[in-house]
Amino acid sequence: MTASDTPAVIVVGGPTASGKSALALDLAEALDGVVINADSMQVYAELAILTARPGPADLARAPHRLYGVLPAATRCSAAAWCDMALAEIGLAQKAGRRPIVVGGPGLSRRALTDGWSPTPPVPEEIRRATVELHESLGGEAFHAELMRWDPKMARRLAPGDTQRLIRAWEVMVATNRSLADWQQEAGAGPPPGMVFDWIVLAPPRDALYAACNGRFRAMVAAGALEEARALLALDLDPELPAMKAVGVPELAAHLRGETDLETAIARAQQATRNLAKRQTTWFRHQIPVAGARVQRSHVARAQYSEKIASETLSFLRNSG
């Protein structure tokens, strides 16, 4: 229990395909909780299958919030998500339910637990020029240029991480300061009295990669190709985050006749494994220790299972 009478907000993290959504759902059932989405792609209404969004059976077991709440034509920033998440946490607590935040990039969750340090707005002309520069240079050369001007951010990002490379460059140009420096500034933190319990799934690499491969094939069987076709029919800006969701570019290439379906699936599986690897690395170095806002952390070095769910519940109950 926290210093106040309000239980800690539970934050469930882990790499993609580790089973964190299933764990969050089990916790919500056992603790009378509300599952609050922190996945940057699951917020988009048009991406149900390709983001492995909870289905009707899951939604019937416990309340879920911030899933499919925005159109793919919008950009959902970490700051915007943080505002929505804090509102949902407050509503859950007022209703006497346990907020359980699950998924998403590390930056979003750290914005929630540590507070958001906003960067100054980037003029639209700088953003357009940055996108055009990336298109003309390509990912590898753009990454090399970023390494010259902002090595702090370049070392954090892969050449294929287009959205974040563009963000790092535009902030550097607009503010003459690395995005890494902006992110290190102390945030205001969550509302007073709010603290967090972190639960992290950290499966062995072989098991995680096998899950990534199997899950994407299951997505295709469930209609991912049709979902990608419908998204492309909206004729959205290809630089929008939703258009870069894992599986969308790969299936789009197939739909344009550039690859066969098996090649598209193999490339999407590789992209999923790459994402899982980056997320695993982040969690290995960024799991917060107990402090003013995080009262405890628990790492389960395995894939989701009923045993892991039971152990996690025991941890939460016995140490609270």
Rank of each mutant, 00 (worst) to 15 (best):
G14W: 15
G14M: 14
P15I: 12
A17N: 12
S18P: 12
S21R: 02
A24M: 05
D26I: 02
L27C: 01
L27V: 05
L27Q: 00
A28K: 07
E29V: 05
A30P: 05
L31C: 03
D32A: 09
G33F: 04
G33M: 01
V34L: 11
V35E: 02
N37E: 06
N37Y: 02
D39G: 10
V43C: 10
V43T: 08
Y44S: 11
Y44C: 13
E46Y: 13
L47A: 13
A48R: 15
A52R: 06
P54F: 00
P54E: 03
G55Y: 08
P56I: 04
A57D: 03
A60V: 00
A60S: 06
R61H: 04
A62D: 04
A62E: 01
A62S: 04
A62N: 00
P63L: 01
H64P: 06
R65C: 00
L66G: 02
Y67W: 06
G68R: 01
V69N: 00
L70G: 01
L70I: 08
A73T: 12
R75F: 13
C76V: 14
S77P: 12
A79D: 14
A80D: 03
A85F: 02
L86F: 10
L86Y: 11
E88Y: 02
E88W: 06
E88P: 08
K94I: 09
K94L: 13
K94C: 15
A95P: 10
A95K: 07
G96N: 09
G96R: 03
R97P: 00
R98F: 04
P99R: 00
G103I: 14
G104P: 12
G104A: 07
P105N: 13
P105Q: 14
P105K: 10
P105A: 14
S108F: 13
R109H: 10
R110C: 09
R110D: 09
D114F: 09
G115P: 13
W116A: 12
P118F: 08
T119I: 15
E124I: 15
E125L: 10
R127A: 09
R128C: 04
